[in-house]
Simulated assay, not measured.
Amino acid sequence: MSRLVNIFQKKNQPVLNVYFTAGYPSLDSTLPVMEALAKNGVEIIELGMPYSDPLADGPTIQESSTKAIANGMTIATLFSQIRHCRENSYLQHTGIVLMGYMNPILQYGFERFCAEAAEAGVDGLILPDLPAFEFENAYGAIIKKYGLDFIFLVTPETTEERVRELDNLSSGFLYAVSASATTGGNTDFEKVNAYLKKLAAYQLKNPVMVGFGIKDQQSVEAVTQYTQGAIIGSAYIKVLSTATDIESATRQFIGQIRPKL
Rank of each mutant, 00 (worst) to 15 (best):
Phe8Glu: 00
Ile61Lys: 05
Gly72Gln: 09
Ile44Asp: 00
His93Ser: 08
Tyr108Pro: 06
Glu161Ser: 11
Thr183Cys: 10
Glu35Phe: 02
Ile246Cys: 09
Leu127Thr: 03
Thr187Asn: 11
Gly147His: 03
Ser248Asp: 11
Phe253Pro: 00
Leu106Lys: 14
Gln9Leu: 09
Leu127Ala: 03
Gly255Asp: 02
Asn40Asp: 05
Tyr101Phe: 15
Val163Gly: 02
Gln228Ala: 10
Gln225Arg: 14
Pro207Met: 11
Ala243Val: 13
Ser170Pro: 00
Ile231Cys: 02
Val177Trp: 06
Lys191His: 10
Ser178Asn: 06
Val223His: 02
Ser65Pro: 05
Asp57Cys: 08
Arg86Glu: 01
Leu204His: 06
Ala118Glu: 11
Ala68Lys: 09
Val15Asn: 01
Ala179Lys: 11
Leu27Lys: 10
Leu153Ile: 14
Asp216Gln: 14
Leu199Asp: 03
Met209Phe: 08
Val223Trp: 04
Thr158Cys: 06
Lys144Trp: 01
Glu119Val: 08
Asn6His: 06
Ser180Cys: 06
Ser178Trp: 02
Gly255Phe: 00
Gln81Pro: 04
Thr155Phe: 13
Lys238Thr: 12
Leu240Arg: 03
Val223Asp: 05
Ile126Asp: 01
Ala70Pro: 04
Met34Asn: 03
Arg3Glu: 02
Val210Asp: 05
Gln9Ala: 12
Thr227Ser: 09
Cys85Gln: 12
Ala222Thr: 03
Tyr101His: 08
Ala22Val: 12
Ala56Pro: 02
Ser170Trp: 04
Leu27Gln: 04
Ser248Ile: 09
Ala141Phe: 08
Leu261Ser: 14
Ser52Cys: 11
Leu127Tyr: 05
Val223Ile: 07
Ala181Asp: 15
Asn168Glu: 08
Gly229Thr: 08
Gln228Gly: 05
Asn186Lys: 15
